[in-house]
Amino acid sequence: MHSASKFLAGQGAVLGGVIVDDGRFDAVASGHLFPHLVQTDRLGGASYAEKYGRRARGQYLRESVAPRFGPSPSPLNAFLIGQGVETLSLRVERQSANALVVARWLETRPEVERVDYVGLPSHPHHELGRRYLTRGSGSVFTVTLRGGLEAARHLVQSVRLITHMTHLGDVRTLVLHPQSTSHSARTVAERERAGVFPGTIRLSIGIEDVDDLIADLAQALDGTASVPLDEFVEAVDVREVVNA
C-alpha cells in the first residue's frame, strides 16, 4: 500500500492511495487471518479464494472495498499523481543523496545527540541497508538534540528554507516534532521504545541544493560546526553519495 500523496506525487498537493497486488497471495493458507477471502458469500456461493485463486485479495478489493469507499481519485488528483510518478526515480535519488549528506553533517554537530539514519555506519541496521537499499537509504530520518524540547522547538521555529509540516516525501525539505504531533497520544514509555524523545525531530529531505539545507540547519542550531560548512560540502559530492 502506498500513500500517493507523498513520494508518488511528490508535491503534497493531492490526496490518494495505491494498492498493488501481484497475484501471488495464498488466500487459503492465510485464511485464518483473512476469513472474508475463504468464507462463502451470504447466498452460499463460492468464496473469493475458490473463485479467484491467488488473485482473491485483489478481486475482493475491487468488488467489495472499492464500491463502498470509492476507488477513483478526481481527474485533477489523478493527473497530478501521474505527473509525479514520471519523475519519481530522479526525485528519490536526489532526496536520498541529500539526506545522506545532511545526516553525515548533523553527526558532526555538538548540539546533536544522535542521528537515526540507516545510511550511516552508526545505525544498528546499516549493513542491512547496504545490502537491500543499493540505490540510497531514503530521505526520512530523525535527529535527537542534546538540548531536549527547548532545542527542538528552537530549531523548528528558526529554520527558514525548511518547512514545518506533518507531510513527508515532498520535493521540499520538511521538519516535524514527533513528541508534540504524531506521537502526542503515546505514553512516555511508548515514545521512547519508538525512539521519540523530547529533543527528537523528524526530517524529510527534499531536492533543494544540499549546501542551502545545511546552511539553514546551521543557523537554526545556532552553534559552531565541528566541520566548517564549505569544507564539508566540498568534501562530499552529492553525485557520488548514492554509490557510496
Rank of each mutant, 00 (worst) to 15 (best):
E107H: 02
P73Y: 03
N77W: 13
V85D: 12
G84Q: 11
Q83M: 13
G70T: 04
L88W: 11
R91H: 10
L88N: 07
V65H: 08
E107P: 00
A97R: 10
A66E: 11
P75T: 07
S96M: 06
A99F: 01
R68T: 06
V85W: 09
P67N: 09
L100D: 07
A97K: 01
P75S: 09
P67L: 05
V102C: 09
G84A: 11
G82A: 11
L88M: 13
Q95V: 02
A78V: 02
F69Q: 08
E93A: 13
Q95T: 04
N98F: 07
W105Q: 05
A99P: 04
A103V: 03
S72V: 14
E107W: 00
R91I: 09
N98D: 09
A66Q: 05
G82S: 11
S89G: 08
L76Q: 13
L88I: 08
S72P: 00
E93H: 11
R94L: 12
A66C: 12
N98P: 00
A78Y: 07
V102T: 06
W105K: 01
R68V: 12
G82P: 06
T87Q: 11
V65K: 05
L90P: 01
I81F: 11
L106Y: 00
A97G: 12
A78K: 01
R104G: 09
A66R: 00
F69I: 12
P73R: 08
L100Y: 02
R104M: 08
W105F: 14
E93C: 08
E86A: 15
N98M: 08
S96K: 05
P71V: 03
A99D: 03
V65F: 14
V92P: 00
A66H: 09
L100F: 05
S72F: 14
N77K: 03
L100G: 04
S72W: 13
V92E: 15
N98I: 00
R68G: 06
V102R: 02
Q95W: 03
L106D: 01
V102S: 07
G70P: 07
E93Y: 10
I81S: 06
S74F: 01
S72A: 15
L90R: 15
L106N: 00
F69G: 00
A99R: 03
I81M: 15
E93F: 10
V92A: 04
V102E: 08
R68Q: 14
A99E: 06
V85S: 13
S89A: 15
G84E: 10
S72N: 11
L76H: 11
R94E: 12
E93T: 14
S96F: 06
I81N: 05
N98Y: 10
G70F: 06
P71R: 12
S72D: 14
R104T: 01
S96A: 15
S89F: 15
R91G: 07
T87F: 13
P75D: 12
E93I: 02
L80M: 15
G70Q: 05
R91D: 14
